[in-house]
Simulated scan of single mutants.
Amino acid sequence: MTSLGFLYPEGTAADDYVRVEQLLGGGIRLHAVRAAPASVDASDPAAAAPDGPGPALTAVPVPPDGERLAPAVEELRLAGAEALVWAGPGFALRQEGAHAQVRALALAAGLPASSTSFAFAHAVRELGAERLAVAPVYGPELTERFARFLTAESGARVVSAPSATGAPAPADGLTALTELARAADVPEATAVLLPGTPLRTAAHLTALEQHLGKPVLTANQVTVWEALRLTDRRVNAPRLGALFTREPLVQMPADRPPPR
Protein backbone atom coordinates (compact mmCIF):
# COMPACT_ATOMS: atom_id res chain seq x y z
CA MET A 1 0.00 0.00 0.00
CA THR A 2 1.33 3.44 -0.97
CA SER A 3 0.01 6.38 1.07
CA LEU A 4 0.36 9.93 -0.26
CA GLY A 5 -0.20 13.17 1.64
CA PHE A 6 -1.56 16.48 0.39
CA LEU A 7 -1.92 19.84 2.11
CA TYR A 8 -4.36 22.22 0.51
CA PRO A 9 -5.65 25.75 1.18
CA GLU A 10 -9.28 26.82 1.28
CA GLY A 11 -10.96 26.74 -2.11
CA THR A 12 -9.26 23.59 -3.39
CA ALA A 13 -11.58 20.96 -4.86
CA ALA A 14 -10.48 18.37 -2.32
CA ASP A 15 -13.19 15.94 -3.43
CA ASP A 16 -11.27 15.54 -6.68
CA TYR A 17 -8.74 13.47 -4.72
CA VAL A 18 -11.46 10.97 -3.87
CA ARG A 19 -12.25 10.57 -7.55
CA VAL A 20 -8.58 10.23 -8.49
CA GLU A 21 -8.05 7.55 -5.85
CA GLN A 22 -10.94 5.57 -7.32
CA LEU A 23 -9.47 5.83 -10.81
CA LEU A 24 -6.01 4.78 -9.64
CA GLY A 25 -7.35 1.44 -8.44
CA GLY A 26 -6.21 -0.44 -5.36
CA GLY A 27 -2.91 -0.14 -3.59
CA ILE A 28 -2.80 3.67 -3.33
CA ARG A 29 -4.39 5.90 -0.71
CA LEU A 30 -4.64 9.67 -0.98
CA HIS A 31 -4.86 11.67 2.25
CA ALA A 32 -5.77 15.33 1.78
CA VAL A 33 -5.66 17.64 4.78
CA ARG A 34 -6.74 21.26 4.78
CA ALA A 35 -4.08 23.54 6.25
CA ALA A 36 -4.83 27.09 7.33
CA PRO A 37 -2.11 28.76 5.27
CA ALA A 38 -0.11 31.84 5.94
CA SER A 39 -0.40 34.58 3.34
CA VAL A 40 2.40 36.57 1.80
CA ASP A 41 2.41 39.40 -0.66
CA ALA A 42 4.22 37.91 -3.64
CA SER A 43 5.38 41.38 -4.68
CA ASP A 44 7.32 41.69 -1.43
CA PRO A 45 11.05 41.44 -2.28
CA ALA A 46 11.56 39.40 0.88
CA ALA A 47 9.13 36.77 -0.37
CA ALA A 48 9.91 36.78 -4.06
CA ALA A 49 12.98 35.57 -5.90
CA PRO A 50 15.65 38.21 -6.60
CA ASP A 51 14.80 38.81 -10.26
CA GLY A 52 13.26 42.14 -9.44
CA PRO A 53 9.93 43.11 -7.96
CA GLY A 54 6.94 42.28 -10.09
CA PRO A 55 3.47 43.75 -10.30
CA ALA A 56 1.54 43.87 -7.06
CA LEU A 57 -0.40 40.67 -6.45
CA THR A 58 -3.03 39.65 -3.99
CA ALA A 59 -1.86 37.62 -1.02
CA VAL A 60 -0.69 34.13 -1.98
CA PRO A 61 -1.32 31.16 0.35
CA VAL A 62 1.82 29.36 1.47
CA PRO A 63 2.07 26.30 3.71
CA PRO A 64 1.96 27.06 7.42
CA ASP A 65 5.20 26.42 9.21
CA GLY A 66 6.41 25.52 12.67
CA GLU A 67 3.72 24.83 15.23
CA ARG A 68 0.87 25.65 12.83
CA LEU A 69 2.02 22.95 10.42
CA ALA A 70 2.48 20.26 13.06
CA PRO A 71 -1.16 19.06 13.42
CA ALA A 72 -1.62 18.55 9.67
CA VAL A 73 1.74 16.82 9.32
CA GLU A 74 1.01 14.55 12.28
CA GLU A 75 -2.31 13.56 10.72
CA LEU A 76 -0.56 12.64 7.48
CA ARG A 77 2.16 10.73 9.29
CA LEU A 78 -0.43 8.69 11.17
CA ALA A 79 -1.98 7.90 7.80
CA GLY A 80 1.42 6.58 6.68
CA ALA A 81 2.13 9.26 4.06
CA GLU A 82 5.38 8.62 2.21
CA ALA A 83 5.48 11.96 0.39
CA LEU A 84 3.82 15.35 0.73
CA VAL A 85 2.67 17.83 -1.90
CA TRP A 86 1.42 21.36 -1.30
CA ALA A 87 -1.57 22.05 -3.55
CA GLY A 88 -1.00 25.78 -3.85
CA PRO A 89 0.40 28.40 -6.26
CA GLY A 90 4.07 28.29 -5.30
CA PHE A 91 5.02 29.77 -8.67
CA ALA A 92 3.67 33.13 -7.52
CA LEU A 93 6.74 33.44 -5.28
CA ARG A 94 8.90 33.17 -8.39
CA GLN A 95 11.35 30.40 -9.06
CA GLU A 96 13.69 30.75 -6.10
CA GLY A 97 10.84 31.42 -3.70
CA ALA A 98 9.01 28.29 -4.90
CA HIS A 99 12.13 26.18 -4.31
CA ALA A 100 12.55 27.65 -0.83
CA GLN A 101 8.90 26.94 -0.04
CA VAL A 102 9.26 23.25 -0.90
CA ARG A 103 12.54 22.90 1.00
CA ALA A 104 10.91 24.36 4.11
CA LEU A 105 7.94 22.01 3.77
CA ALA A 106 10.17 18.95 3.40
CA LEU A 107 12.20 19.96 6.44
CA ALA A 108 9.12 20.55 8.58
CA ALA A 109 7.44 17.30 7.52
CA GLY A 110 10.49 15.06 7.30
CA LEU A 111 9.17 13.72 3.99
CA PRO A 112 9.94 14.18 0.30
CA ALA A 113 7.93 17.23 -0.69
CA SER A 114 6.88 19.22 -3.72
CA SER A 115 4.11 21.53 -4.88
CA THR A 116 1.55 21.74 -7.65
CA SER A 117 3.73 24.27 -9.47
CA PHE A 118 6.65 21.85 -9.74
CA ALA A 119 4.21 19.07 -10.55
CA PHE A 120 3.17 20.92 -13.71
CA ALA A 121 6.79 21.43 -14.78
CA HIS A 122 7.73 17.80 -14.14
CA ALA A 123 4.61 16.53 -15.92
CA VAL A 124 5.39 18.69 -18.97
CA ARG A 125 8.86 17.15 -19.13
CA GLU A 126 7.40 13.65 -18.66
CA LEU A 127 5.15 14.13 -21.69
CA GLY A 128 7.89 15.75 -23.76
CA ALA A 129 5.58 18.66 -24.50
CA GLU A 130 7.52 21.55 -26.05
CA ARG A 131 4.80 24.14 -26.64
CA LEU A 132 2.17 24.86 -24.01
CA ALA A 133 -1.22 26.54 -23.91
CA VAL A 134 -2.33 27.72 -20.45
CA ALA A 135 -6.05 28.17 -19.80
CA PRO A 136 -7.21 31.56 -18.46
CA VAL A 137 -7.71 30.94 -14.75
CA TYR A 138 -5.46 33.71 -13.35
CA GLY A 139 -5.25 37.46 -13.77
CA PRO A 140 -2.46 39.00 -15.88
CA GLU A 141 0.22 39.09 -13.15
CA LEU A 142 -0.20 35.49 -12.02
CA THR A 143 -0.55 34.28 -15.60
CA GLU A 144 2.77 35.86 -16.50
CA ARG A 145 4.52 34.39 -13.47
CA PHE A 146 3.14 30.93 -14.16
CA ALA A 147 4.32 31.06 -17.78
CA ARG A 148 7.79 32.20 -16.73
CA PHE A 149 7.98 29.51 -14.06
CA LEU A 150 6.99 26.79 -16.53
CA THR A 151 9.58 27.92 -19.04
CA ALA A 152 12.35 28.03 -16.43
CA GLU A 153 11.52 24.69 -14.80
CA SER A 154 10.41 22.59 -17.78
CA GLY A 155 12.25 24.11 -20.74
CA ALA A 156 8.99 24.23 -22.71
CA ARG A 157 7.71 27.34 -24.44
CA VAL A 158 4.35 28.86 -23.53
CA VAL A 159 2.72 29.77 -26.84
CA SER A 160 -0.69 30.82 -25.50
CA ALA A 161 -1.61 32.12 -22.06
CA PRO A 162 -4.64 34.42 -22.04
CA SER A 163 -5.57 35.99 -18.71
CA ALA A 164 -8.86 35.68 -16.93
CA THR A 165 -10.98 38.80 -16.93
CA GLY A 166 -12.86 39.63 -13.77
CA ALA A 167 -13.73 37.04 -11.17
CA PRO A 168 -13.18 33.49 -12.44
CA ALA A 169 -16.39 31.72 -13.34
CA PRO A 170 -17.02 28.23 -11.98
CA ALA A 171 -15.71 25.64 -14.41
CA ASP A 172 -17.20 22.40 -13.16
CA GLY A 173 -18.48 19.99 -15.76
CA LEU A 174 -17.12 18.90 -19.11
CA THR A 175 -18.70 21.68 -21.16
CA ALA A 176 -17.30 24.49 -19.01
CA LEU A 177 -13.86 22.86 -18.76
CA THR A 178 -13.73 22.32 -22.52
CA GLU A 179 -14.59 25.97 -23.15
CA LEU A 180 -11.90 27.03 -20.69
CA ALA A 181 -9.29 24.86 -22.40
CA ARG A 182 -10.30 25.98 -25.90
CA ALA A 183 -9.95 29.61 -24.87
CA ALA A 184 -6.20 29.00 -24.71
CA ASP A 185 -5.61 26.20 -27.20
CA VAL A 186 -3.82 27.00 -30.45
CA PRO A 187 -2.75 24.60 -33.22
CA GLU A 188 0.95 24.75 -32.36
CA ALA A 189 0.42 23.84 -28.69
CA THR A 190 1.38 20.24 -27.90
CA ALA A 191 -0.33 20.22 -24.49
CA VAL A 192 -2.99 22.28 -22.72
CA LEU A 193 -2.69 23.15 -19.03
CA LEU A 194 -5.59 23.94 -16.71
CA PRO A 195 -4.04 25.29 -13.52
CA GLY A 196 -6.10 26.11 -10.47
CA THR A 197 -6.84 23.54 -7.78
CA PRO A 198 -10.52 24.62 -7.46
CA LEU A 199 -11.19 23.00 -10.86
CA ARG A 200 -12.82 19.56 -10.62
CA THR A 201 -11.29 17.79 -13.58
CA ALA A 202 -10.62 14.16 -12.56
CA ALA A 203 -13.83 12.81 -14.11
CA HIS A 204 -13.29 14.58 -17.45
CA LEU A 205 -9.63 14.12 -18.39
CA THR A 206 -10.03 11.59 -21.19
CA ALA A 207 -12.98 13.50 -22.67
CA LEU A 208 -11.00 16.74 -22.60
CA GLU A 209 -8.09 15.10 -24.40
CA GLN A 210 -10.44 13.65 -27.00
CA HIS A 211 -12.05 17.04 -27.60
CA LEU A 212 -8.71 18.82 -27.93
CA GLY A 213 -6.74 16.05 -29.60
CA LYS A 214 -3.73 16.52 -27.33
CA PRO A 215 -2.62 15.88 -23.72
CA VAL A 216 -4.30 17.88 -20.97
CA LEU A 217 -2.68 18.59 -17.61
CA THR A 218 -4.78 19.83 -14.70
CA ALA A 219 -3.82 20.95 -11.21
CA ASN A 220 -5.20 18.11 -9.09
CA GLN A 221 -4.19 15.49 -11.65
CA VAL A 222 -0.53 16.57 -11.73
CA THR A 223 -0.45 17.05 -7.96
CA VAL A 224 -1.27 13.37 -7.42
CA TRP A 225 1.12 12.29 -10.18
CA GLU A 226 3.89 14.30 -8.51
CA ALA A 227 3.33 12.54 -5.19
CA LEU A 228 3.56 9.19 -6.96
CA ARG A 229 6.76 10.34 -8.66
CA LEU A 230 8.27 11.20 -5.28
CA THR A 231 7.65 7.61 -4.16
CA ASP A 232 8.92 6.07 -7.42
CA ARG A 233 5.47 4.69 -8.27
CA ARG A 234 4.21 4.36 -11.82
CA VAL A 235 0.52 3.77 -12.28
CA ASN A 236 -1.22 3.00 -15.54
CA ALA A 237 -4.59 4.74 -15.25
CA PRO A 238 -5.77 5.78 -18.73
CA ARG A 239 -8.92 7.48 -17.39
CA LEU A 240 -6.60 10.05 -15.78
CA GLY A 241 -5.21 11.11 -19.15
CA ALA A 242 -2.04 10.70 -21.18
CA LEU A 243 0.14 11.54 -18.19
CA PHE A 244 -0.95 8.30 -16.49
CA THR A 245 -0.35 6.09 -19.52
CA ARG A 246 3.37 6.77 -19.85
CA GLU A 247 5.69 3.82 -19.42
CA PRO A 248 8.97 4.14 -17.49
CA LEU A 249 11.87 5.02 -19.74
CA VAL A 250 13.78 2.01 -18.41
CA GLN A 251 12.04 -1.19 -17.38
CA MET A 252 13.72 -2.34 -14.16
CA PRO A 253 13.85 -6.02 -13.12
CA ALA A 254 11.09 -6.92 -10.68
CA ASP A 255 13.58 -7.65 -7.90
CA ARG A 256 15.48 -4.40 -8.34
CA PRO A 257 14.11 -1.11 -6.97
CA PRO A 258 13.98 1.89 -9.30
CA PRO A 259 16.75 4.50 -8.90
CA ARG A 260 16.13 7.60 -6.85
Rank of each mutant, 00 (worst) to 15 (best):
R131Y: 06
A161V: 01
A184T: 02
L127D: 12
R148W: 10
Q101D: 15
R103I: 04
A92G: 06
L212E: 03
W86G: 09
G155M: 07
L111K: 09
L180A: 00
R94I: 07
P187Q: 10
L199A: 14
V124H: 03
F149Q: 02
V158Y: 07
A108T: 06
A147F: 09
L205A: 06
T197Y: 08
S154C: 10
V159F: 01
L107Q: 15
L78T: 15
G110M: 11
D172N: 13
P195V: 10
R148G: 13
P168V: 04
E130Q: 15
L105C: 11
A106T: 09
Q210I: 08
V102A: 13
V102F: 13
A147V: 01
R94W: 13
W86P: 08
L208I: 04
A152M: 02
L93H: 03
L127R: 05
E179G: 14
S154A: 07
G88W: 11
R125N: 14
L199G: 02
E144K: 14
V192M: 01
A164I: 09
G90D: 09
A109C: 09
E141C: 08
A83Q: 06
A81V: 04
W86C: 12
V85W: 06
H122N: 15
L174Q: 08
L174T: 03
G155I: 05
T143Q: 15
L174G: 07
P112S: 11
Q210V: 14
E144Q: 14
L142S: 12
G80Y: 11
A133Y: 00
D172I: 02
R103G: 04
